[in-house]
């Protein structure tokens, strides 16, 4: 009898604790479900509809939107521009970040100051930064063309010629993301056990040979991880494109069409909600694929 009563008391206490847990989770979970999980599910659902936001009819078109996307020159251009942008930006940003991280990870004088200065572009808001770069890239009065003229090059029409504008966006994006990658590289470099370096010194390996044969192989998982994270972010590029490539007859990014811009335009200028959702679904699949690679890398890292 006493035993049963004690059990009852314990289970009541347990129930009360469960209730506390669910109450604590109610608000956060509700916010996640309403503002993230349901919209994600609805993106997939909308991608199969043909809807202009106004008409009451939302005919089901199956994979029709995707079929149309495949043949859409704007989408093809956006996909190729975004891919070129991602490939060049990520490669340059990763290599440069590693170059600055190598001395900083070992510790040099003014290390903190250098880290601060390299990292600043990453945390500062993109719109004002892009405004500054727009002026730097100005064909007539810009500093970039001035510097090029000193070595006898240019002038380049950075913001009016599509190829050059893509490069202007790439240069600015490398500048912006380098500091973030640097931080991750410093962490990765400092995690390499000191014995490796000591052993290498005893073997007489130094400089480039040491880097090639010891540091780089040990750092490879970090390199891969940073590459994947940066590639996901690069496919998401929008703000700097919106600001830098926007002046031709008020049509933003008429010059450099990227994936997110194309989604934005289809949804909020042409009100093609189903079509834009199909495009967002393609983006979703790209991100998912890259994330699966990231998990692979993380797993092989812990094994």
């Amino acid at each position: 009898m006493g035993h049963a009563a004690a059990l009852m008391r314990v289970s009541r206490a347990l129930m009360a604790r469960y209730a506390f847990c669910y109450l604590m989770l109610a608000l956060p979970t509700a916010l996640f479900v309403v503002f993230r999980i349901i919209p994600i599910a609805r993106t997939l659902q909308l991608s199969t509809l043909n809807w202009d936001l106004i008409s009451p009819a939302k005919p089901f078109v199956g994979l029709g939107n995707f079929r149309e996307l495949l043949l859409d020159p704007n989408f093809q251009l956006a996909l190729s521009n975004t891919t070129i942008f991602a490939a060049v930006t990520v490669t340059a940003s990763v290599v440069l970040a590693l170059l600055v991280a190598l001395p900083l990870a070992r510790g040099v004088r003014l290390e903190g100051l250098y880290q601060l200065l390299y990292f600043l572009p990453f945390v500062a808001p993109t719109v004002p930064e892009a405004v500054a770069w727009k002026w730097i890239c100005d064909t007539r009065y810009g500093v970039l063309n001035y510097l090029l003229s000193l070595v006898g090059l240019g002038p380049v029409s950075w913001l009016t010629e599509p190829r050059a504008t893509l490069w202007a966006v790439i240069i600015m994006s490398v500048w912006k993301t380098l500091g973030y990658n640097m931080i991750l590289f410093i962490v990765g470099l400092r995690a390499i056990p000191a014995e490796y370096t000591e052993a290498a010194l005893i073997d007489g390996a130094a400089g480039w040979r040491h880097f090639r044969s010891i540091t780089l192989p040990l750092l490879m998982p970090t390199v891969l991880l940073i590459t994947v994270i940066s590639t996901i972010a690069a496919y998401n590029v929008f703000t700097q494109v919106y600001v830098l490539a926007s002046d031709i007859q008020g049509s933003p990014a008429g010059l450099v069409r990227v994936l997110i811009y194309d989604i934005f335009e289809n949804a909020f200028r042409f009100y093609r909600m189903g079509y834009a959702s199909a495009e967002a679904t393609v983006f979703f699949v790209i991100v998912l694929g890259l994330t699966l690679i990231q998990f692979r890398v993380l797993r092989s890292q812990t094994e």
Partner: peptide, 28 residues
């Protein structure tokens, strides 16, 4: 508590998807 792992995974798994993937329905 029951459901702990499932709820945690649901909250974290969606973190990988940027707002841009679901901004259209959220706008609606």
């Amino acid at each position: 508590f029951p459901g702990r792992t499932v709820i945690f995974l649901i909250l974290l798994a969606t973190a990988i998807l940027p707002l841009e993937t679901y901004m259209v329905p959220l706008y609606l």
